[in-house]
Simulated scan of single mutants.
Amino acid sequence: MDWDKLRLFYEVVDAGNFTRAGEKLGVNQSSVSRQISALEQDLKVPLFHRHPRGLILTEHGEVLFRAAQDIRLRLDETRQRLTETSERPAGDLRVTATVGIGGIWLARRITEFLDLYPDVRIQLILTNDELDLAMREADIAIRLRRPAQPDLIQRRLFTIQYHAYAANSYLERFGEPERIEDLDNHSLLSLGGDQPAFILELHRLSSLGRDPKDPRPSRLVVNDSLALRKAIENGAGIGMAPDYAMSGNPGVKQVLRDVEMPVLDSYLVYPEELRSVARVQVFRDFLVAKAQRWDF
């Protein structure tokens, strides 16, 4: 199979049409179309359904695209390994983490890592969705639950403690709850939206000590954990937050300190095939060292 045609096919799928693929590769649209037709003739199968709104892969096209994607990933890995040594880690590293951990705990430390390893370039992807590491949507993930896939290396980083917090300004106006029942008379802030169920449960003061079918009303529901913490800090009410996000903040106070609150273990996860990649090794060792020193 002609690699040049296969690469062109990959770029067409990625771009969505012949024109954009041609612009990326520096060739005209008709040349791209001719080469794709030649590839289809070589393989004796149609790869695309031509549609006025764009190109749609056929079943054969899907099979070929997965193969081309795998080849491209492996070529990228090989190129980066050839330019990298164990003494001087280099290359691109895609790191995914939840919005909370990535936007606060990891973001505070990433500059130090970049100073230590100036030839490593990091793309930080903040999302509560679990990206597919096997398909190389990211190289390394920090996750809030143990991964189920057997081909992923995992290392527990640290335990995250969650507690109820309120701004000092809010407590001065409305007083501090002493018992769970006191929450009935306070403004509660909750996390909502399209989040994993276990993340939503962590932030749900509305059902603490209550029948889940009869929760307290929340005065404010937001779909972003960072926005939730800003609302707490600004005195909108009482909400749940991880200790790493609130520690050292003189404007907020932990309330209901005698009430048992939820905890989560965080994990550093990456594919088995990246075990010996130098930039992955040094990033792993950097984060593990920070976690072991309880660097919060």
Rank of each mutant, 00 (worst) to 15 (best):
Leu55Thr: 00
Ile56Cys: 11
Leu57Gln: 06
Leu57His: 06
Thr58Gln: 02
Thr58Trp: 06
Thr58Cys: 01
Glu59Val: 01
His60Leu: 08
His60Thr: 02
His60Met: 08
Phe65Lys: 05
Phe65Ile: 00
Phe65Thr: 00
Phe65Arg: 08
Arg66Lys: 13
Arg66Asp: 10
Ala67Asp: 04
Ala68Gly: 01
Ala68Ile: 01
Gln69Tyr: 09
Asp70Asn: 02
Asp70Glu: 14
Ile71Pro: 00
Ile71Cys: 01
Arg72Lys: 07
Arg72Trp: 07
Leu73Asn: 13
Leu73Val: 02
Arg74Gly: 01
Leu75Thr: 10
Leu75Asn: 15
Leu75Phe: 12
Asp76Glu: 15
Glu77Trp: 04
Glu77Ala: 15
Thr78Asn: 09
Thr78Ser: 09
Arg79Lys: 08
Gln80Tyr: 07
Gln80Lys: 15
Gln80Arg: 15
Gln80Ala: 15
Arg81Asn: 09
Arg81Gly: 03
Arg81Leu: 14
Thr83Val: 13
Thr83Pro: 05
Thr83Met: 15
Glu84Pro: 00
Thr85Leu: 02
Ser86Thr: 14
Ser86His: 15
Glu87Val: 04
Glu87Arg: 10
Arg88Asn: 01
Arg88Phe: 01
Asp92Met: 14
Arg94Tyr: 12
Arg94Glu: 14
Val95His: 12
Val95Thr: 13
Val95Glu: 10
Thr96Arg: 01
Thr96Val: 03
Thr96Asn: 07
Thr96Trp: 10
Thr98Tyr: 09
Val99Asp: 04
Val99Tyr: 09
Gly100Met: 13
Gly100Gln: 08
Gly100Val: 04
Ile101Gln: 12
Gly102His: 01
Gly103Gln: 03
Gly103Val: 03
Ile104Thr: 10
Trp105Tyr: 11
Trp105Gln: 11
Ala107Thr: 00
Ala107Cys: 05
Ala107Lys: 11
Arg108Gly: 02
Arg108Met: 02
Arg109Cys: 11
Thr111His: 12
Glu112Met: 07
Leu114Asp: 05
Leu114Gln: 14
Leu116Glu: 15
Tyr117Asp: 07
Tyr117Pro: 11
Pro118Trp: 02
Pro118Glu: 02
Asp119Thr: 14
Asp119Met: 15
Val120Leu: 01
Val120Lys: 03
Arg121Gly: 04
Ile122Met: 06
Ile122Ala: 06
Ile122Gly: 04
Ile122Leu: 08
Gln123Ala: 13
Gln123Trp: 04
Leu124Cys: 09
Ile125Leu: 15
Ile125Met: 15
Leu126His: 11
Leu126Phe: 12
Thr127Pro: 01
Thr127Tyr: 01
Thr127Trp: 09
Asn128Thr: 04
Asn128Met: 05
Glu130Val: 07
Leu131Ala: 05
Leu131Ser: 05
Asp132Gly: 05
Asp132Gln: 05
Leu133Ser: 08
Leu133Met: 12
Ala134Arg: 12
Ala134Tyr: 08
Ala134Lys: 11
Met135Cys: 12
Met135Trp: 13
Met135Phe: 14
Ala138Lys: 06
Ala138Gly: 11
Ile140Gln: 10
Ile140His: 12
Ile142Val: 14
Ile142Ser: 09
Ile142Trp: 08
Arg143Ser: 06
Arg145Asp: 12
Arg145Tyr: 13
Arg146Cys: 15
Pro147Lys: 00
Pro147Gln: 00
Pro147Ala: 03
Ala148Ile: 13
Gln149Tyr: 08
